[in-house]
């Protein structure tokens, strides 16, 4: 079951859904609109190796925007801190964003219950597109869980900006351990 916009407002008021800052105007029928923060990350490595800590540049998006060429991949972030200990959030592009050929996540829409923080957008352009800080580019929906809840305590908790991948930490602790 997916929450309606009205239910999201009720649950934000009861502190069972965390969206901050929260603006009632951004509620849609089944979701809440998310805006693009002003910090962008661009990886510098020639080849990404999940075993190694990636090198990257952090860039501020100027008021006049930043242009992504077709094929560019950058990490951005939502201005809003989101999360819930009672519902499962899913991230989606806004239809207007998708119609420009811009992905806001790369097959990773699912957020763990109990995860709180600004969300990292995985921005992949299929057409040249200019992005402005503060523009509404994504939306979050909330889904009812089934079963006992164990909250997220992972490595991306309490993100305050775009967070590059931390797979090198998995490899440090050897994800292959005795698994054959």
């Amino acid at each position: 079951m997916i929450l309606t916009g009205k239910k999201i407002i009720e649950e934000v008021r009861k502190n069972r859904i965390d969206i901050s800052p929260f603006d009632k105007e951004r509620i849609t029928t089944n979701s809440y609109d998310l805006s693009l923060g002003d910090t962008i990350i661009r990886y510098k490595s020639d080849i990404i190796d999940p075993r190694c800590k990636p090198s990257y540049d952090e860039i501020k998006i100027p008021k006049e925007g930043i242009v992504l060429k077709a094929g560019d991949f950058l990490l951005g972030h939502s201005n809003e801190r989101i999360g819930s200990d009672f519902y499962v959030p899913l991230i989606h592009g806004k239809s207007g964003t998708a119609r420009m050929g811009l992905f806001v996540h790369i097959t990773a829409d699912l957020i763990d219950i109990g995860s709180h923080g600004v969300t990292t957008f995985q921005l992949y352009a299929t057409l040249p597109v200019r992005l402005y800080p503060g523009m509404l580019i994504a939306q979050v929906s909330f889904w009812v869980p089934f079963g006992d809840i164990v909250l997220y305590k992972g490595k991306y908790q309490n993100s305050t900006g775009p967070r590059p991948s931390m797979t090198y930490k998995d490899f440090k602790y050897d994800i292959f351990k005795n698994k054959g």
Binding site: Y43, I48, P50, P54, F73, L75, H105, I106, T107, A108, D109, L110, T120, Q122, Y124, Y156, R163, P164, S165, M166, T167, D170
Partner: peptide, 10 residues
């Protein structure tokens, strides 16, 4: 789907 850690690599 993918994991967020792989989505963050595109």
């Amino acid at each position: 789907i993918g994991r967020s850690s792989m989505g963050r690599y595109g």
